[in-house]
Design a protein around this nucleic acid. Structure first.
Lengths: 342, 342
DNA sequence: TTGTAGGCGTTATCAA
DNA sequence: TTGATAACGCCTACAA
């Protein structure tokens, strides 16, 4: 019961190795009759290609690129760290990984950088930027060069990506809502929702999820209009001060995206806020410490190591034209409290 | 900057391929001077072995065995399913996986089965049974035959295992306590703790974790003595009925191990229990449905797919005498509510 | 103690 | 359109 090889197929089909290889890899023309015999032999013997041997013969190396948003952002920093960690672990696996930072807030700048890529030196790209028409076109261009593209962390539903590696942000928002609802059992009141809006689509979906769960399961809780503070710490401070003054029934804060550090700073400055339930997104050095210090009650997170490894596995599978193991590539929405922090 | 091969090492060191191979694999004697030159060349060129090429040459196959507790148990069933799923996905990766079920409740039976193993046909074993002196000896025996052993799900701290794949149950218990404390904000009362005690050590550790968190952070909540019902549904029904009668302040149930189905059945039969907060362990068909039906508030889980793949990766790394990527093998304590169910 | 030659499963090159 | 033959990086006889 050993695994059949190309030799076995050749013998069974009564042709040479090369002919087998040709039909297996769809190279030059093969007489239909022979092609059929090869396919029959493959079927009969249950042949599956040994990818590693193939890569050895091809001297294949996978060249992948991560395109990440630049600028100070703790979450992106943890991702970049995970990429470098995975890269060094994967170097033995014939994969070379690079990282490129782009100004995600400027669609034209993003596209400019993407257009400059030497696609001939690339097998796959994992891209984390907000979707714009320009980005959509740039991705189509990359793909037309035979380079695989996965949407990374932020989905690009209208682009022709090969895969999306990340969580369903609608469900993430619902999860946050469910936690807030349970943490505030038997209580009524309002919830302050803040975000930096850096990656707009994600925040919007999370907000929808939050609203759906609150209105359905916890109507006693009311989420206030989303406050966006565009990298302006002052803005959030003012917002919080106003909220505590205006909303006597303020019970919780839901921080939907980046900017947790500013939010926490503001929180610390106003003693009246210390009793609030706080749910935030993304496990970073900042939120980790805040969990330990009991300033944040729960963090909704996605495991960055898993994200990165999943992107690499998916890209490799695409290159090998091999099936991906769906269950393994499912990125989970993690709930982190102090006690299950890792 | 291509990866150096054994050829490069041989040339650099001025010796033949076989000599390089010999020092790389510590085979027969090599003159110290040559050995040193080879090592220097390896160091200088930064050589790392291509494991896949090596396995190809060796025609290596990894033969692994999972030893799981038999008997009706939803959690073990999901593990077995994950093993078979991983096995078929890994067949291309030169690994053969088998599963053996043992009567974990009977240490002698377990040892008997372990002793019967043909260790010559095995490279590694992942073993999920409670630790007993007999088991400890059996593991020493397996290891002395050159077969690698990982403790799986249940730790075997006093045995000579190569690794433990699973969660820290003390932290898991703390996580449960933290959730109960937060779900019962501003409330005082008692918590019923139940377990089947099938895997004793795990339940004990979870109980310790629970108690620590409650006494430290939520002293207003009191956990009742652990009720063990040994596969006896009747037992838990009676327990619950008594609890609701005796404990007017009963607020929650913490189900520490298997037997969630029986617990839920009992719960459904007593309308007075429907308002209780319920936290359970392990994501199975039963707990999944209960989450959807709002009968369970949260499940503490470990991803079985991750568990199985981690065990396989670790065993392979041991066989290859290669380093494991610690971060990837860290099994997380997952908190699952209805909204982040997967 | 050391080196040479061949093979693992696949692909690439060339000539037929 | 097909088939030898020689790689790829490593390991294992066997010979020296």
């Amino acid at each position: 019961m050993v695994k059949p090889t190309v030799h076995d197929i050749a013998r069974e089909a009564g042709v040479s190795l090369s002919t087998v290889d040709r039909v297996l890899n769809g190279r030059t023309d093969v007489r239909p009759k022979n092609a059929e015999r090869v396919r029959a032999a493959v079927e009969k013997l249950g042949y599956v290609r040994d990818t590693y041997a193939a890569n050895l013969a091809k001297q294949r190396r996978y060249r992948f690129l991560f395109v990440l948003p630049e600028g100070p952002n703790h979450f992106v920093e943890t991702i970049a760290a995970a990429v470098h960690e995975a890269a060094s672990a994967q170097v033995a696996d014939r994969v070379d990984v690079e990282v490129m930072f782009v100004n995600a807030a400027d669609p034209h700048a993003v596209v400019e950088r993407l257009k400059q890529l030497n696609l001939a030196t690339l097998d796959g790209v994992a891209i984390m930027v907000p979707e714009t028409p320009q980005v959509r076109d740039a991705i189509a261009h990359i793909k037309s060069a035979g380079v695989y593209v996965v949407a990374f962390v932020s989905d690009l539903p209208n682009s022709k990506c090969d895969h999306f590696v990340g969580i369903d942000n609608f469900s993430a928002g619902k999860t946050a809502g469910a936690l807030l609802g349970r943490f505030l059992r038997n209580e009524a009141g309002s919830i302050l929702v803040v975000t930096n809006s850096m990656v707009a689509r994600d925040s919007i979906e999370r907000r929808f999820g939050l609203d759906e769960v609150l209105s359905r399961d916890f109507p006693r809780l009311k989420a206030l209009p989303t406050v966006e503070f565009h990298d302006d710490p002052q803005r959030i401070r003012v917002t919080l001060d106003h909220a505590v003054a205006d909303q006597a029934d303020l019970k919780a804060i839901y921080s939907m995206g980046s900017g947790n550090a500013a939010m926490l700073d503001a929180l610390r400055e106003n003693a009246q806020l210390s009793h609030l339930i706080v749910v935030a997104h993304d496990l970073t050095a900042v939120t980790r410490q805040a969990l330990l210090d009991d300033e944040i009650d729960a963090v909704i997170a996605q495991n960055v190591g898993h994200l990165v490894r999943s992107a690499l596995r998916v890209l490799r599978a695409k290159c090998d034209k091999t099936l991906i193991f769906e269950a393994q590539e499912q990125i989970r929405i993690e709930i982190i409290v102090r006690e299950n922090l890792y």
